[in-house]
Simulated scan of single mutants.
Amino acid sequence: MASEGEIAVVHFTGRIAEGEDAGEPFDTSDVDVALDEGIYHDNRDYRPLEFRVGGGEVVDGLDEAVRGMTVGEERTVRVDPDAAFGEHDDGKVVEISRDELEERSDVTAEQGELVGSETGETGWITEVGDDTVTVDFNHELAGVSVEFDVKLLDAYEDE
């Protein structure tokens, strides 16, 4: 049984829980699921996820889901934004000068392009105007309820 402080070893698949994208997977630790669902990436190492229960290493909803699970048990849990990737924060959406952005980075100011901030945060361009660019530094799933299909493969004490 997975409990606080132990290392949990899980296979998981995260899916959008509601709206027009409900059921769409956004992440998985299982290569077969990634291939079947069309979300496979060559640069990714698909293997079970290991994390310390209660260690803040994964989103709260996934951490909470494994507590009390027994090895071999599977469950699907719905996780609201506050225990997943956070609520969408309008304060993390900024408008900056297009010239300034292009001068200080390799960015060509195209919608969807990733941008790094001076403080190390990563955002993406959501809107491009003639003179300004809007960049969103929220997590891409901020404000979204998700579901995790979780299978506990092992739980052990790390000595």
Rank of each mutant, 00 (worst) to 15 (best):
E4W: 13
H41F: 13
D89E: 12
G143D: 12
G143K: 09
I7W: 08
D82L: 11
Y46E: 02
R98N: 06
A2K: 04
D130Q: 10
R44S: 01
Q111T: 15
E24Y: 00
R52N: 05
Y156N: 00
S145Q: 03
G116P: 00
R67T: 07
E4H: 08
L114T: 11
S105W: 06
E159V: 01
L152K: 04
V71F: 11
E73R: 04
H88S: 10
S117Y: 09
V128R: 07
G72K: 13
T28D: 03
D27C: 14
F85G: 04
E73I: 06
V93K: 11
S145C: 04
A65V: 06
S97V: 04
H88G: 00
A34Q: 11
S117K: 12
D60W: 03
N138H: 05
V58G: 01
A34T: 05
E73W: 11
L35R: 14
T134G: 04
G19T: 12
E87L: 12
G116N: 10
N138D: 12
E74K: 15
E121P: 00
V150K: 00
L153D: 07
M1S: 12
Y46M: 01
G61C: 05
V128G: 08
D106V: 10
T122A: 15
R47W: 04
A34G: 09
E110Q: 07
E157C: 00
V59M: 09
V128E: 05
V94Q: 12
H139R: 11
N43E: 13
G38R: 02
T13V: 13
E110G: 03
F148L: 10
V144S: 01
P48E: 07
K92E: 05
F26D: 00
G120F: 03
E87G: 08
G116K: 14
R104A: 14
E113S: 07
V150G: 00
P81F: 01
R78T: 09
L35Q: 14
H88V: 09
H11V: 06
A22N: 05
P81N: 01
G38N: 05
G123A: 11
V71P: 03
G55W: 08
V150H: 00
L101S: 02
S97N: 09
F51P: 04
I7R: 14
E121G: 11
K92H: 07
G14M: 14
G19A: 06
P48N: 01
E64A: 14
I96F: 00
E18S: 15
V115W: 09
R52Q: 11
V146C: 07
T119M: 14
D21A: 15
W124S: 14
D45W: 08
R52D: 01
D30I: 06
V94T: 11
G116M: 00
H88A: 10
D42C: 00
S3V: 11
M69K: 07
V150F: 01
T122P: 01
